[in-house]
Design a protein around this nucleic acid. Structure first.
Lengths: 220, 220
DNA sequence: TAGATTGTTAATCGATTAACAATC
DNA sequence: TAGATTGTTAATCGATTAACAATC
């Protein structure tokens, strides 16, 4: 019945991927899976999967494996994505719009409830039913609606001030798309950075192996 | 003079963050830094930083530390982001547009040279100087221009086919924004997935600690 | 029942940290 | 020169893998 044992960071990092894979399996109509099969699918070892899951409880059954649906529900509980957190989005530029229009927040158990911007051209418009408010209404809105998460899509130079303003207004977590690193210990709430550039750089690094011009890939 | 020694995955994962931090330091006009100071800034240990960097060579100087500029250049070489790779973007929806308009490709040494879509409404338009071609021109274009990287922003159901088509046309790496996991060993080129949802879920997980409604966060 | 597969304990492997001689 | 800081070797710590009794 333990909620958390001693969950290492490495395990936590794998949880979203477990969740994603299991959702895909469920979509394919697969109702149960063994650690061995799942390992094959995810390029892990069966041992590791059993070890990881056992941090949170015994969800499997000997001789049978794991129920996909049950595991999904458990992972939603573990990840805390089942609680229908309420999110507001700051900065309705191209990226903000792309998120409002295309991103499936509900997949993560998050519900976007409002957006904010300063530009007259977007204030008052709606994206997929989400209304864009003038930024000056932020304080009043937060007091009334008590959102949990802020999706930060403002320009880099405005990001830090905005983050502090949000925390002051009761925001409990920041999903940060502005390309600025924020010190969590200063803000006092979790900040999850999305660094597109890290991802692209990792791709470039991994492409070096296949680079026809890179002949100096020798050891020593 | 070693190009690569035995670089573990953990080290590689930290490289983009080293690069980002050093660029920030350079922007602040800081010309040199010791492993101790850098460790403080990045929440690592000085030992780890020296260990990590020494995988690629001895870039520091006893009694002095590291030259920020020199380290940036070295990291660009190590990461392979200095080669000005050429990228094409597939799928000019909101996300594709957001990337074309806002993302600083040059930060990663990548140069976007063209975009492709099927919709008559966007074909022929330009975003920051990048022209949107009709998708049917892809083959001809690739043969002529030989792009290295594909930025995949097409809908999930088109992603896998498109990826295979791109590889057939000589693409050597895929930056994948479509929410579909691709088997690299099938494609034969590196694929770097951008999973927004993983990031948002991790935020939700980390917010659990501060959740006022979550009283059962006990050990055992 | 027999076969399969779990959860967990022990063994191995790898990554991080500490320490220190070399030297700028 | 003396103080500072590197690169590297050895020690510690943690994470992954292997093995197996328990049991569905």
């Amino acid at each position: 019945m333990a909620n958390t044992k001693n969950v290492s960071k490495a395990v936590v990092n794998r949880l979203p991927r477990y969740y994603r894979t299991l959702r895909e399996l469920a979509d394919q109509g697969i109702g149960r899976i063994s650690s061995k099969e799942l390992a094959l699918q995810m390029d892990l070892t069966a041992s590791q999967i059993r070890q990881d899951l056992s941090c949170f409880g015994g969800f499997g059954q000997q001789g049978y494996g794991y129920s996909v649906d049950k595991l999904i529900v458990e992972l939603e509980r573990i990840l805390g994505v089942a609680g229908s957190q309420r999110a507001i989005l700051l900065g309705v530029g191209n990226l903000g719009r792309a998120l409002l229009r295309n991103f499936d927040f509900s997949y993560c158990g998050v519900r976007p409830i409002a957006a904010f911007d300063t530009a007259q051209t977007v204030v008052g418009s709606d994206f997929r039913g989400i209304h864009v408010h003038a930024l000056q209404e932020l304080e009043e809105y937060c007091e009334r609606e008590r959102p949990d998460i802020a999706v930060l899509c403002v320009p880099a130079d405005k990001a830090m001030d905005m983050a502090q303003r949000l925390v002051k207004n009761g925001i409990r977590g920041i999903w940060n798309f502005s390309n600025v690193s924020m010190k969590e210990d200063v803000l006092g709430v979790p900040v999850q950075d999305v660094h597109f550039s890290d991802s692209l750089m990792t791709l470039c690094y991994r492409m070096k192996d296949t680079d026809p011009f890179d002949e100096i890939n020798e050891i020593e």
